[in-house]
Amino acid sequence: MSDHAHSTVGLAHHFDDLEQQKESGTLGMWAFLITEVLFFGGLFGAYAVYRSSYPDAFMRASAQLDVNLGGINTIVLIVSSLTMALAVYAAQKGSKGGIIAGLVGTWVFGAAFLVVKYFEYKHKWEHHLIPGPNFLFPDAHGVGQHGTPEQLYFALYFAMTGMHAFHMIIGLVILVWMMKKARRGDFTVHNYALVENFGLYWHFVDIVWIFLFPLLYLIGAHSGTPGAPH
């Protein structure tokens, strides 16, 4: 035991070695990500069906979104993905400071994304674009209408972005925990699977947004219909 101590720190009893443990963890993470793909997949399926049923209504509804805010948020999320990748890089190199810097950067940009999202949601709230009894979508006369197909767009908008934001909030919580572990020096060159697997999760959340952005924000952008009221 003593001469293998360096390679068995953090090894669970039922694994033969750290390599098997790490590979198992990575594979488990990927299997989990598959479930995430299909979890969002149901929403994408509903989106595809209603988008094909109501293309015009979806265009009009989509034009209520602010492409600039969505674009900024896309960049913000890409930056956070980069910092996350750098944290994994630092972990591979055994740089404790690098890990912490990467995680903090990821947290800050992740939080920034949610702040922007908050303002977007607030705007929808003020303009009666929350699906439900108070939903009103302006018709040709500017009169708010209930129960239009545009409401379906917003139902999906909130379900998809809400589910995405929920994943980000969970990610931010885990990031805080990981920062503590990193400060304690829990991650070593041999044992950083947690950083790597969380990185997979974070990048996945980024990928979801990469698809949400064009589907939700951009489909109405060319139509020339008035954009989001400011």
Binding site: A31, I34, T35, E36, V37, L38, F39, F40, G41, G42, L43, A46, Y50, S53, Y54, A57, P131, G132, P133, G147, T148, P149, Q151, L152, A155, L156, A159, M163
Partner: peptide
């Protein structure tokens, strides 16, 4: 692993529809 998440999200949508009545499965709302 491949199937269960789709049931999960379907049930989320059903719950949202039931509680907030947002129209996802309601023909009266499209």
């Amino acid at each position: 692993v491949l199937g269960t998440p789709v049931l999960a999200i379907t049930i989320v949508l059903l719950g949202l529809e039931r509680v907030f009545h947002i129209g996802i499965f309601d023909p009266a709302l499209g």
